[in-house]
Amino acid sequence: MLIRPRVCEDLDACVEALALVHAADRYPVDWPGDPGGWLTPQGLTGAWVAVEGGVVAGHVGLARGVEVVRLFVVPAARGGALAGRLLAAVRAAVGGPLELEVSSEGAAAIAFYERSGWRRVGSGRAAWLNAAGEPALVHRYVSS
């Protein structure tokens, strides 16, 4: 599996991969009207993809210099440490600790971050709604 910086030509394949993740995990909670735009949020300073045979199997973005955003791995590629490899690519680019927010509904993601040594530093309500239609509870983590 090759991990490399995302290029414009990858965006359609990233949207296809995101659709698989959304169907399996409801991430993002609500399918965006413009999924390509959702994968390219304001403040994005970099993005990486995991690709095998021309198919995008994972994605991660970096915003505001240290914040991990839009991290996902398609269900068929899970269990092989791909999320950790994507985070390692971001960490290598930054050269220091990273930050991220994760919804309390993302139990598997929270377990992964905590197993990987990330430390919860706070929690609060988001401006967007969770699956129950309430302001989502999000936890903020910092890498070691």
Results as ranks from 00 to 15, higher is better:
Leu20Glu: 15
Val69Lys: 11
Pro35Trp: 06
Pro5Ile: 07
Gly53Thr: 05
Asp34Tyr: 02
Trp118Lys: 01
Glu114Ala: 11
Asn130Thr: 02
Glu99Ala: 02
Gly133Gln: 02
Gly53Met: 06
Ala63Met: 08
Leu129Phe: 02
Arg119Pro: 02
Asp25Gln: 00
Gly65Ser: 02
Glu52Thr: 13
Val49Gln: 15
Ala50Ser: 00
Val21Ser: 12
Val102Glu: 04
Arg4Thr: 02
Arg125Ala: 00
Arg115Met: 03
Leu86Ser: 09
Ala81Asp: 15
Glu114Gln: 15
Val90Phe: 01
Ser123Gln: 12
Ser144Ile: 00
Gly37Gln: 04
Ser116Asn: 08
Arg70Leu: 02
His59Ile: 08
Pro97Phe: 03
Cys8Gln: 03
Tyr141Met: 12
Thr40Arg: 13
Arg6Met: 14
Gly37Pro: 11
Glu52Gln: 08
Leu20Met: 14
Glu9Val: 00
Arg140Gln: 13
Ala89Cys: 09
Ala24Asp: 15
Ala57Glu: 02
Tyr113His: 13
Ala17Phe: 05
Ala50Met: 01
Pro75Asn: 05
Arg6Pro: 03
Leu100Tyr: 05
Ala88Thr: 10
Ala107Gln: 01
Leu71Tyr: 06
Arg70Pro: 00
Ser143Glu: 12
Val90Gly: 07
Ala92Asn: 08
Arg85Gly: 14
Gly43Leu: 08
Gly96Met: 04
Pro135Leu: 07
Ala13Glu: 15
Ser123Thr: 14
Val138Arg: 10
Ala50Asn: 04
Ser104Tyr: 05
Val21Thr: 15
Pro35Arg: 07
Val121Trp: 06
Glu67Arg: 00
Cys14Lys: 06
Phe112Gln: 14
Ala76Gln: 14
Pro75Gln: 10
Arg6Gln: 13
Leu44Glu: 10
Leu44Asp: 04
Gly79Asn: 07
Arg64Cys: 06
Leu18Thr: 06
Gly53Asn: 05
Ala76Cys: 10
Ala23Trp: 04
Pro35Cys: 10
Tyr27His: 09
His59Thr: 08
Pro97Ser: 11
Ser104His: 11
Tyr113Gly: 11
Trp48Leu: 13
Leu100Lys: 10
Gly95Ser: 11
